[in-house]
């Protein structure tokens, strides 16, 4: 393969394989900004994935798939919200259980459907054609970056748009400001007349819905082939990590996705990169792939430590009341 081709494919892979991380991260940022630490990203994405895929295929429409993935994700969010916001359950435990539960549903539904008739993606033109790459005029003609960044399927662009929209929403709108207030100090927010419960419910559900779409993307990207390992395969946990890396900023999450994506795509492209550039990158082939797999977690651990050492309030986007339930009568 020629060098340009290899590089193009590498950039293309970085984007193609890792956009689900962006969905998961942006969704989780929205949830965490309301002061709730939801560790159920993995499960929520799995639920969104399986139902989005099945309903999308049955309706033969990508739009229906996206919508149902969002809806089922939001439903997971609703479970989380009822338990932690209304019923004061511990957030860590509820989130972890949501992960177990969601993965359970994923396998249960997939398995029982497979016993009858599993919908094959290519039989449903509405889904498979909707998921085809879209060449953006002019931009996609740029060498390397053109194909790498501007010839993707619609869900890639949607993910970027959602990330930017959430950034705008959090930082430039009144409702976003109120949401951040709820995450920082719910009692103070309550005292100025913000309905804390409603804000939390709303944003947990929307955030989890966004995660669900990310799960759906993941399923489509694997052509909907259902086997023993889950489509999500740990991406939900990386998303939890990426939130910290992005410092709770959805726009930075795009950058973070590509940084993490770089390491995720490396094992896929390492051998072809090493062949195309034997002098500069020949050593890439020698690095064990497990190190690449562990890198997102190692980087996040370091970022986590670094932010806590710096620990200047104000510079960190960590919501002050993250993980704490708000009980009005204790105000």
């Amino acid at each position: 393969m020629d060098k340009i081709g290899v590089l193009t494919q590498f950039v293309y892979n970085i984007v193609l394989l890792n956009i689900p991380l962006l969905y998961g991260t942006v969704g989780e940022i929205m949830v965490e900004k309301s002061g709730c630490l939801n560790l159920g990203v993995e499960g929520t994405m799995a639920v969104g994935a399986i139902f989005g895929y099945i309903f999308g295929c049955y309706a033969n429409s990508l739009g229906v798939g996206i919508f149902s993935a969002f809806l089922m994700g939001a439903l997971c969010g609703l479970i989380f919200a009822v338990l932690t916001v209304s019923l004061q359950a511990n957030q860590n435990i509820t989130g972890l259980t949501l992960s177990t539960f969601g993965l359970g549903i994923y396998f249960f539904v997939g398995h029982s459907l497979k016993a009858k008739a599993w919908p094959v993606m290519n039989d449903y033109a509405g889904v498979s054609e909707g998921f085809q790459g879209i060449q953006i005029p002019l931009l996609s003609k740029i060498p390397i970056i053109g194909k790498g960044l501007f010839s993707h399927n619609i869900l890639v662009y949607l993910g970027i748009v959602i990330a930017l929209a959430v950034w705008w929403y959090l930082n430039r709108t009144t409702l976003g400001l109120r949401l951040r207030a709820v995450g920082e100090n719910p009692a103070a927010a309550d005292s100025v007349g913000i309905n804390v419960k409603r804000m939390k419910y709303l944003h947990i559900c929307i955030g989890c819905g966004i995660m669900g779409i990310g799960g759906y993307y993941m399923g489509l990207n694997m052509s909907g082939s259902f086997n023993s390992s889950c489509w999500i395969n740990g991406y939900g946990w990386i998303a939890v990590a990426l939130v910290i890396f992005a410092n709770w900023n959805p726009a930075l999450a795009i950058l973070g996705t590509f940084v993490f994506g770089f390491f995720n795509a490396l094992p896929v492209s390492a051998s072809s990169l090493a062949m195309a550039f034997p002098k500069g990158l020949g050593w890439l082939a020698a690095i064990p792939s497990q190190l690449y797999d562990a890198l997102p977690f190692i980087i996040t651990a370091i970022v986590l430590i670094a932010t806590s050492i710096r620990n200047k309030r104000g510079s960190s986007g960590l919501p002050a009341a993250l993980g704490l339930n708000y009980f009005r009568e204790e105000r």
Partner: peptide, 11 residues
């Protein structure tokens, strides 16, 4: 019925 029914029930 997949054996992950247990995980669902557990959740």
């Amino acid at each position: 019925v997949s054996s992950s029914f247990a995980n669902m029930l557990q959740g």
